[in-house]
Write a protein that binds this DNA or RNA. Structure first.
Lengths: 299, 299
DNA sequence: TTACTTTTTCAGATAATCTGAATTAAGAGA
DNA sequence: TCTCTTAATTCAGATTATCTGAAAAAGTAA
């Protein structure tokens, strides 16, 4: 079987037109090159060159040169592509995150990640925790950042930080006069607007409010709009409450056990792609700085 | 540099899922295969397989398998294409011939040639001797079969046979009563229709006729139609006069020096393609039989 | 755990490829 | 035609890459 390396030698000689210079270029002696050419011709069973000097190709030689040149180029491209993939210079990364993470935590990471890994195709999904888990489980996303899933399934959850809930209310709401932080007792008379995140709170005082609640919003923007218009108060993780409009206020809860745990969601089997691994590396490295910026408790 | 053969080993293992069977298929021992895989992973700098057993690929492994598989297929195809070309199972052959040769001599050759060389693309040009020479010289045709060119140029002419001229006239022409073969003297009173082939005749008796002639045709069909309608007589090489319509008669010339020499036209430099060489081989082999069929004098 | 299978490792064997010197061949100029 | 020069080939030995076979290690299944 003719080897690719032999064809590489042939193409070089065919292009340069003599063995001596081609041998130079290849870093071989002319005798080695000569023997390689002889071997190819023997394997093919027909001459590639016209006459003894290697400056005129036969028709077969011309055909072989063109075909082999293309093949060699393709091969070299493949090898560098494999290297690029292995060292996450190419590839795709699909992230699925809960909106607050997608909006606050991810952008500063992505900026740096894209600078360090140009050529990586990025896709960012925005969904509630349950859907994030689904996206990662189905393989649609390589990585998820969301609350702890109810059912573990084939997923692996790695806690990142605790995100304490805050009370959101209209700037005209009676709570505005309250001492901070807010105790459950101060909320007992309030109307709650339920939301996806707060529903995971498993405290009696919250349950009582939730049972009386008649409004629910899944989208943070509409939730805040409702609170702003005085329809009630709502509980949101701190990360979702940065950059609030002036029409609403946010207060800490006195009960510091009220928080959601946000973490990484990965498939257990089947490894991460190099790009995913690179993103995780970056995340781990930046964790401290990020958590400080957003005042989150690592865990 | 990762070798193609190493990738071949990897793809086999990746597809079969274990080293032992892959080694079997490759005709190697498991240890050789194991070492090759290790070498590739070292060269890439990242693992291709998940865990110790070789049945789960990493993302890099899957990427590499797919890319390498395509490359290997392409390479194998290339090698067999080179072999096919070398042994003239593929390629193109462009022939340029004078019409009589194209119509009589070539068809029986082509029939056999195409049967022996399936996959060869054939092209047949039909032109007068001067144009045939031009086509071969410019490289548009690989091979020409025509009369001896006036100017040799870079072309090489190899005589094949002598084709004697015959006299063509209407079935109602006075010559019909003449003794055969026809002497120049019998034609002295006739009107000549000139044609491309006969113009190469360099005999005084012909010159005299030619000077008085007012009609000329380049196309054999129209030439014969003119002769049939009694417009005059014409001189055509024997090979052009097989299968004449009933409306005309053909007679040999008494002067047996009157003939065109038909031969092969090749470019001197730059060798024939394998297909061209194969056609020449066939032609040389069949020459005897062909010349007998058409009663031609070899030379 | 034990029995079994698969993979890896290692040293030596084998095969492929390379080098350097000698030889042969080709082309240029007298 | 005969040299001179340069290029290419050949050959033997050296070098390197790759392979094998045995032993060790690492999994798997009962």
């Amino acid at each position: 079987m003719i080897k690719l390396e032999a064809l590489r030698v042939f193409v070089t000689v065919a292009e340069i037109g003599n063995i001596r210079d081609a041998a130079d270029r290849l870093g071989r002696t002319p005798s080695a090159v000569s023997m390689t050419l002889k071997q190819i011709e023997e394997l093919i069973g027909a001459p590639l060159f016209e006459g003894d000097r290697k400056n005129v190709l036969t028709a077969l030689g011309r055909f072989t040169r063109e075909a082999a040149r293309a093949q060699i180029q393709g091969y070299d491209k493949l090898i560098s592509k494999i290297h690029a993939y292995a060292h996450h210079r190419i590839g795709t990364l699909t992230l699925a995150c809960v909106p607050s993470v997608a909006a606050r935590l991810v952008p500063p990471l992505l900026e740096r990640f894209m600078a360090e890994n140009p050529g990586v195709q990025l896709e960012l999904f925005d969904a509630d925790s349950a859907r994030v888990a689904g996206l990662v489980e189905s393989g649609e996303a390589d990585l998820g950042i969301a609350g702890r899933p109810q059912v573990a399934g084939v997923l692996h959850f790695r806690p990142l930080f605790r995100d304490r809930f805050k009370v959101i209310c209209s700037a005209r709401h009676p709570l505005v006069d309250a001492e901070r932080p807010v105790a459950w007792s101060e909320l007992s008379g309030a109307t709650l607007i339920r939301n996806g995140a707060s529903e995971s709170i498993e405290v009696d005082a919250y349950r009582a409010l939730s049972e009386r609640a008649t409004l629910m919003a899944r989208n943070v923007t509409s939730l805040i709009a409702m609170a702003a218009s005085g329809l009630g108060v709502t509980l949101l993780p701190a990360l979702s409450t940065t950059d609030l409009p002036a029409s609403v206020r946010s207060y800490e809860l006195a009960d510091d056990g009220i928080a959601r745990t946000v973490g990484l969601l990965e498939r257990k089997e089947g490894s991460q792609s190099p790009v995913t691994a690179a993103f995780l590396d970056l995340l781990t490295g930046q964790k401290g700085a990020l958590f400080e910026t957003f005042q989150l408790e690592a865990c």
